[in-house]
C-alpha cells in the first residue's frame, strides 16, 4: 500500500469519470469508461485485493466496454449532452 501511488490513481480516476460523462460521442465515452475500469483495477491490485482486481480487469475493462460498444453500434452514436 503506497499512498503516493494511491493518490495519483485516484486523481486520474476522477478525471476519467468526468471525461467519460462529458464527452458527446458515445463510442468515446464507452472507451473512456474502459480506461476508468482499468484504472480502478490498478487501484485494487495496489490495495491488495488481487481477486477483485482480476475480476475487474476481465469484466470492467473487457466485457462491459464491449457490451456498451455493441449497444452504441445498434443505436445512436451521438449524445445531446
Amino acid at each position: 500500500m503506497i499512498w503516493q501511488f494511491d493518490i495519483i490513481i485516484l486523481i486520474f480516476l476522477v478525471i476519467t469519470a468526468v471525461i467519460s460523462l462529458r464527452v458527446r460521442d458515445l463510442l468515446s465515452a464507452s472507451m473512456i469508461f474502459g480506461v476508468y475500469s482499468f484504472l480502478i483495477c490498478l487501484l485494487w491490485a495496489e490495495m491488495g485485493a488481487v481477486d477483485v482486481a482480476f475480476t475487474e480487469a476481465a469484466v470492467g475493462a473487457g466485457v462491459s466496454a464491449v457490451f456498451l460498444i455493441a449497444t452504441v453500434f445498434n443505436t445512436n452514436r451521438r449524445s445531446s449532452d
Binding site: V50, D51, A53, F54, T55, A58, V59, G62, V63
Partner: peptide, 12 residues
C-alpha cells in the same frame, strides 16, 4: 488469484 468468475469471463 482467480476462480470460476474470472475464468468464465475470460473464456466468454
Amino acid at each position: 488469484p482467480g476462480g470460476g468468475f474470472q475464468g468464465g469471463v475470460i473464456l466468454g
